[in-house]
């Protein structure tokens, strides 16, 4: 069985969000880059667990990004996985990225493609579904549990108002979220081993993007908190009813 885990580079969760070039670019000065948490904690770690249970599984990592993605790819390899592929391209829209992933997935004949449910920068939630459609594969989104059973996938996923357990045959694309696995810290052996794992760089295929970012904006600043004395909670309740009109 071959598993492909897609990892994206995102700003750290505590990064200051600011923009440059007339609000058309994210200000990267001083920003720490991380593996998108949904890709790392849930998709990658669950895939590593599957491989630990069955070492015959081939586990490959895929990033669509520039050379500056390599530190996060090495970190991912330090957690686990046999090898990585980087499609050498600066970021573009989700259709462009999904097309690159689908191309690699098709050529490599992967049975299972894991993505995070979304990235914490663009919040698109689109890559998994687009890859599945491009490949003509089944797509299970928002997975909170994933197991292999009798050659099929047994997946628990979030649906509107609850969750459902479902079964599907491969090939399959799954987007992962909390519940799939627990965050891991790479150990020294993993970090040393990651240095020599293969990292193949390939050029992107030509794809026309469907959308583009015109500009960014920051939300207007909050007016400031209105503090109510701890002795007068009825005043808080009055404000919520009469001023904010929310209860």
């Amino acid at each position: 069985m071959k598993i492909l885990v897609c990892i994206s580079k995102t700003p750290d969760t505590t990064a200051k969000i600011a923009f440059t070039d007339n609000n058309t670019k994210f200000a990267t000065d001083g920003v720490q880059w991380i593996i998108n948490p949904y890709d790392e904690w849930y998709a990658l770690v669950r895939a590593i667990e599957l491989k630990e249970a069955d070492p015959s599984i081939a586990l490959h990592l895929l990033n669509v990004g520039g050379a500056d993605s390599e530190p996060i790819i090495r970190k991912a390899l330090a957690l686990g996985g046999d090898e990585a592929i980087r499609v050498n391209s600066e970021e573009n829209d989700s259709f462009f990225v999904a097309s690159q992933i689908a191309n690699i997935a098709k050529e490599g004949g992967y049975d299972l493609v894991f993505t995070g449910k979304e990235t914490i920068d663009y919040n698109g939630s689109s890559i998994g579904g687009m890859v599945a459609e491009l490949l003509g594969n089944t797509y299970i989104s928002h997975a909170t549990k994933f197991d292999l059973q009798d050659g099929k996938a047994l997946v628990t996923r979030e649906i509107e108002g609850g969750e459902e357990q479902c079964q599907a045959a491969f090939p399959l694309v799954v987007s992962c979220q909390k519940g799939m696995a627990e965050q891991r810290i790479p150990n020294m052996k993993g970090i040393m081993g990651a240095r020599t794992k293969p990292l193949k760089v390939v050029e992107p295929i030509a794809v026309d993007s469907m959308t583009s970012v015109v500009s960014f904006e920051l939300p207007p600043a909050k007016a400031g908190v209105k503090l109510v004395s701890a002795d007068q909670p009825e005043e808080l309740v009055r404000l919520l009813r009469e001023e904010a009109k929310v209860i």
Binding site: P11, I120, D121, S209, T211, V213, V214, F216, E217, L218
Partner: peptide, 13 residues
């Protein structure tokens, strides 16, 4: 975008 910390204006082509 950025988990509610910003907005992006997206052109659909």
């Amino acid at each position: 975008v950025f988990s509610g910390k910003a907005f992006a204006n997206i052109a659909v082509k």
